[in-house]
Nucleic acid binder design. Structure first.
Lengths: 213, 213
DNA sequence: GCAGTCAGAGTTGTACACAACAGTCTAGCT
DNA sequence: AGCTAGACTGTTGTGTACAACTCTGACTGC
């Protein structure tokens, strides 16, 4: 693989992570020159990354003003959630991946991380774990376009939970999350990816209703 | 709207159309300088467009070689079709748009174009009509992410029909297409967008099985 | 005759200088 | 005092020169 494409992927994932973990809160002005300087490159390859983030709806470049992190609210994102629910369900029906020992080891690891999170709740750790866990959930299907589509939509809504957590009970959210992972582990132990996908779907739906309060 | 963004949209739509109508068959080497010259701009804005097309999977840039139109075959695209089927169905369930007089006028127009197509069948005209009609079908939902996602996946598979038509019966395909549009017109006349979406879904599915032969 | 090598053309990737633009602050006039 | 014009600063968008890379083909040595 060419190093240029690899660097592009790295920068894209890094900036996307910063945006979705609210290191760059909505409205933040990202400086192309500052970022290029930080990553030891010129503006040109960096603009390639920002362009992709703009196509994905995470930033918005305005001539003469700056590159602004987009603002998101639950109302505008409800359409995305409506679609995400169905896609989560589809993971269990469209080219489901065989449940290998590797998969079982993966879910066990997430249960462990979830247990640790419940022991010492932290909003940012929750968000990071949720992000990683979403990637794991996508690995349950071999349907590549489904994966990339669901990923795209996930990162579009990922920030909302962190924005809403001040109005919610963090400890309770962590416990619910761990509970979901445990249920998923049980489903995967029997090789039932459909059940795992259904669990994910209902979890997302309930999470939305809790945030909407 | 800034003229820069507008031009970007224009060039993107134009190149995408050329690729999906096989003006640029798979494997074609697109020259950045030649395209920049044709559109009266420099390589920089044009590369922005090509980057987007690459993210969408329609072209692939290789350093020192060129920007190649991607190759697609039905086998690799079956995953995309599997997803498209469900999304087509969702158009009728997720934020369905009210059936206005404008919508009815739209479908009537497409039936007319379909009738003309049956009168004098032509592969390229079919493909163009199919492309426009797909956009119309998306207008039946107000769910924006569903629209953009379905559009993205459509253009990923749009070329396959034109590639397969030499092994199929063009007149028969045109008749089937017209029949679908007439059924859709009847469904929309009763305000039943769910039925319209279901018709679209079954049509896509049957089209795939015919192409697979 | 054949294989290896090297030079050349053509391409995309990168860096940088400059143009275009938006917002702000100040100076000057009324 | 208030208001307007204009310069100034900082940003993104564009153009262009050059670097990095791939492939081809001819040439040279054996």
């Amino acid at each position: 693989m060419s190093t240029a494409a690899a660097r592009h992927q790295r920068l894209h994932a890094e900036l996307r992570s910063r945006i979705c973990l609210l290191d760059y809160p909505p409205g933040t002005r990202l400086s192309e020159t500052a970022l290029a300087d930080e990553f030891g490159t010129s503006r040109t390859p960096l603009r390639r990354v920002l362009a992709r983030l703009e196509d994905e709806g995470l930033v918005e470049s305005r001539h003469g003003v700056g590159t602004l992190v987009t603002d998101v609210d639950l109302a505008r994102m409800e359409q995305v959630y409506g679609l995400r629910l169905h896609l989560a369900e589809l993971v269990g029906h469209l080219d489901p991946a065989p449940v290998t020992a590797e998969v079982l080891a993966g879910i066990a690891g997430y249960v462990a991380r979830g247990t640790a999170l419940v022991a010492s709740p932290d909003a940012r750790s929750f968000a990071q774990l949720n992000m990683d866990y979403h990637g794991f959930g996508l690995s349950l299907t071999d349907n590549l376009p489904l994966r990339s589509t669901a990923e795209r939509l996930y990162f579009l809504t990922a920030r909302i939970w962190l924005q809403s957590i001040p109005r919610m009970d963090l400890a309770s959210e962590c416990a619910i999350f761990l509970s979901e992972m445990q249920d998923t582990a049980a489903a995967l132990a029997t090789g039932d990816t459909q059940a795992a996908a259904a669990i994910r779907r209902t979890h997302i739906a309930m999470s939305v209703t809790r945030m909407a309060r």
